[in-house]
Design a protein around this nucleic acid. Structure first.
Length: 210
DNA sequence: GTCCTGATCCTCT
DNA sequence: GAGGATCAGGACG
């Protein structure tokens, strides 16, 4: 597996980062959406662009299951959610509230329709690019929300359906997680709000909400 | 075709 | 803490 080389003077730093990255294999996404949502904590989301390599550690996720009333796939396949019904390890990016995009990872076998929403990252690399995109200086304000991290990493709806095991947008292995995982109900939804399907690293200052 | 809802974020008070 | 911005998707007729 290889990643596209970044352009420009920052090339060496970025290349070193990319050499160390171990892309999560397709097999990682087997084992159930709820399990994958927890396993994704501590993993890296990496976007290689002409502006530079942006990388963050996943610190908060939410699982959306097929029979879950809050899941976009609950009423069957539509033009918008068809990526959710595709093979696992792909990006599902959708537009919300007339203004924002959210990034999900497809986590179930083709035809099922489940995904994990990435809610927050701890910025690790490309922070200056993230600051520029977000127009915010504090690291805690760069990726502490689903729409924020999408903006910070330069992810767009053009990434809807891309393979996260190859190419410019990938998920990769991170350092071993030693922090306990906190399980709570999900944020910002009305239906299915009682389900304990939100996961985050305890006491991490980059999560969207306590 | 029309209307309502929404997996959010930011600004103002 | 409250409320506004803003528009695509989906339900309904």
């Amino acid at each position: 597996m290889s990643l596209p080389a970044p352009e420009g003077e920052r090339c060496r730093e970025d290349s070193e980062l990319l050499r160390e990255i171990e892309i999560l294999p397709r097999a990682f996404y087997k084992g159930g959406t709820t399990q994958v949502a927890q396993k994704l904590l501590g993993k890296l989301l990496v976007h290689v662009t002409a502006a530079g390599v942006c990388c963050g550690k996943i610190v908060e996720t939410e699982a959306y299951l097929q029979d879950d009333p809050a899941c976009h796939a609950v009423r069957g396949m539509t033009k918008r959610n068809r990526v959710m019904f595709g093979p696992p390890g792909h990006a599902y990016v959708y537009f919300i509230y007339g203004r924002y995009d959210c990034f999900n990872v497809v986590t179930a076998a083709a035809g099922v329709g489940e995904a994990v929403l990435i809610r927050a990252l701890e910025p690790l690399a490309g922070i200056s690019v993230m600051r520029c995109r977000r127009q915010r200086q504090k690291p805690e304000e760069l990726c502490s929300g689903p729409a924020k991290l999408v903006q910070a990493l330069g992810i767009t709806r053009a990434h809807n359906g891309v393979d996260l095991t190859a190419g410019e947008l990938i998920l990769a292995q991170g350092a071993e997680v030693t922090t306990p995982i906190t399980v709570t109900t999900r944020i910002g939804i009305r239906v299915g709000a009682e389900l304990p399907l939100r996961f985050y690293l305890k006491d991490n200052r980059f999560v969207s909400k306590k």
